[in-house]
């Protein structure tokens, strides 16, 4: 609204100072709103990091900046004295997230290509099915899979989590890649063929470099989705295969009925920082991937 007010102000035949004042007021309001959003989004995250670095004796200290700084909480997180195996949990999350992402990409990239580039019957139905699949409730899978995996001895195995994870990561992958592929300048492929490239060369030298960022962004989104999964893992993992999300939810402290807040915040920081860095670096691409298909 202010953008148009600004433009309007420029168009106005009213005295210039009034227009300038109004424009200044409008941009001032924009900055105030932006600051509010900024604070609202980052303050809880900031509080997690402050607490993660705070001495356990000062857990509930309300001082808003870093005080009583210590690495102890991170040492607690990775120590196995209290029955936690956080390093193991991290590895599990990488295995589950990694395998899920690779499977979803390898299978989904072909479907996305077909959906974006080819004309065929039932395309609408296929898209509908894939979208419907991504909105499928996890609990409707957990119950039958719990029994099935128990019966065939897969309960607590990696595949017991990877298989249900594919049910929402694969649709997400196909959906995002399809929108990306639809935007790609495919004419270049034909141009390369006309210029004498073989089909293989055209694919390798023209299409691959163009598609790589799209595939990479999709991989990040898919990995984050699998990494953040909690419901399925909380029901189908065991102590050896438990991923970080489940580990953090049931993190054991020194006292049985006392929540080890500072250690949990440290664990949360360890889990979150890589994602946040990834997201900040690829911000533009990720926003494009997230909103791909929802508009246009």
């Amino acid at each position: 609204m202010t953008a148009s007010t600004l433009k309007a102000a420029a168009f106005d035949s009213a005295p210039k100072t009034a227009a300038r004042n109004r424009a200044r007021w409008a941009s001032g309001r924009t900055y105030i709103s932006a600051a509010l959003i900024f604070i609202w989004c980052l303050l809880p995250f900031y509080w997690m990091i402050v607490t993660a670095f705070r001495d356990v004796g000062y857990t509930f200290d309300p001082t808003p900046f870093f005080t009583h700084v210590t690495w102890d909480n991170f040492i607690t997180v990775f120590s196995t004295d209290l029955g936690n195996h956080f390093a193991r949990n991290l590895l599990n999350s990488f295995i589950i997230g990694g395998v899920t992402t690779v499977v979803a990409l390898v299978v989904g990239v072909f479907a996305a290509y077909a959906l974006a580039r080819l004309e065929f019957r039932f395309k609408f139905l296929v898209l509908g099915f894939i979208l419907g699949a991504s909105m499928f409730p996890g609990v409707a899978l957990v119950t039958p899979l719990f029994q099935l995996f128990t019966n065939i001895g897969w309960y607590g195995s990696y595949q017991a989590m990877i298989i249900p994870d594919i049910s929402f990561v694969l649709p997400l992958t196909v959906y995002t890649l399809t929108s990306f592929f639809r935007e790609m300048p495919w004419e270049l492929e034909e141009a390369a063929r006309i210029d004498g490239c073989t089909q293989g060369q055209a694919f390798r030298k023209v299409i691959m470099p163009l598609a790589a960022p799209a595939i990479f962004t999709t991989a990040i989104l898919a990995f984050i989705a699998a990494w953040n999964e909690f419901l399925i893992a909380s029901q189908l993992s065991n102590d050896e295969t438990k991923p970080v999300t489940v580990a953090i939810a049931y993190f054991a402290g020194a006292q049985p009925h006392q929540e080890p807040y500072t250690a949990v915040m440290a664990a949360g920081t360890v889990v979150t920082i890589p994602l946040v860095i990834l997201v900040l670096i690829f911000q533009r691409k990720i926003v494009a991937g997230l909103t791909a298909g929802a508009v246009k």
Partner: peptide, 26 residues
């Protein structure tokens, strides 16, 4: 503006399990 757009991605990227613990603590 791009800093703001990056900032709003932070809550989205945090795993829900961590979000739950964070707000439980708050």
């Amino acid at each position: 503006r791009s800093a703001l757009r990056a900032a709003v991605l932070v809550p989205w990227a945090i795993p829900t399990a961590v979000t739950a613990k964070l707000w439980f603590f708050i």
